[in-house]
């Protein structure tokens, strides 16, 4: 079982991200369970959502406390909460930021994780460019797919088409493609973050 925790703020599509991830996994024939942190959903308030992906039926219902991956949609949360609590030693971290992992003050975490397991991408900017709105969730998911190989891009595209109407889906898919390319490049170049480009 692979467990993902997504952090962000109300209005950033955090719950939708978990949903899309579960639908993408489902489309690949896997079992998936997505659920929100069940707070009062207020715009701007810190929100977490969870997604479990497994080959067999998932019975466990507790919140994810030992994630295999953490996706941070809002970097302003980095210093307010322990977003990486319980993260597996070989876990993945993807952060929405134009800054480098080091500049975000996460050098320590980077050193603990395997090579290429922590990245920062300017997802909000990419979303603004391709979707026209600063909703980073799809960009982050596509980056996550590129980073982990857990889901294939076509499955994510399928999930996006299921969720959104055609014109919005097309924009999101464009954003997803850009993110996938960016992360693939970053990993290939062994950079782990984007310093100069944004």
């Amino acid at each position: 079982m692979f467990e993902i925790r997504i952090h962000g703020r109300g209005g950033q599509g955090v719950v939708t991200a978990a949903e899309l991830l579960s639908v993408a996994a489902f489309r690949e024939g896997k079992h998936a369970q997505a659920f929100p942190s069940f707070g009062s959903e207020r715009t701007g308030a810190p929100v977490a959502a969870f997604c479990r992906i497994a080959d067999e039926a998932i019975r466990l219902r507790e919140p994810i406390s030992k994630p295999n991956a953490v996706i941070v949609q809002d970097p302003t949360l980095l210093h307010s909460f322990d977003l990486f609590s319980g993260l597996a030693a070989d876990g993945y971290v993807l952060i929405n930021s134009g800054k480098s992992v080091e500049a975000l003050g996460l050098t320590g975490l980077k050193q603990k994780l395997p090579q290429g397991h922590i990245l920062a991408i300017p997802a909000t900017e990419l979303a603004r460019t391709h979707i026209g709105r600063p909703i980073p969730n799809v960009v982050m998911l596509s980056g996550f797919a590129a980073m982990t190989g857990l889901i294939v891009p076509s499955a994510l595209c399928g999930a996006i088409k299921e969720k959104f109407n055609l014109s919005i889906a097309e924009k999101n898919i464009a954003a997803a493609n850009a993110a996938f390319e960016l992360v693939t490049t970053l990993i290939a170049s062994n950079q782990g973050s984007l310093i100069e480009q944004c």
């Binding site: 579960s22 639908v23 079992h31 369970q33 997505a34 659920f35 929100p36 069940f38 998932i58 219902r61």
Partner: peptide
């Protein structure tokens, strides 16, 4: 509530 009502599963 929430645990099932708000959970996505197959």
């Amino acid at each position: 509530g929430f645990i099932l009502t708000h959970a996505y599963e197959q």
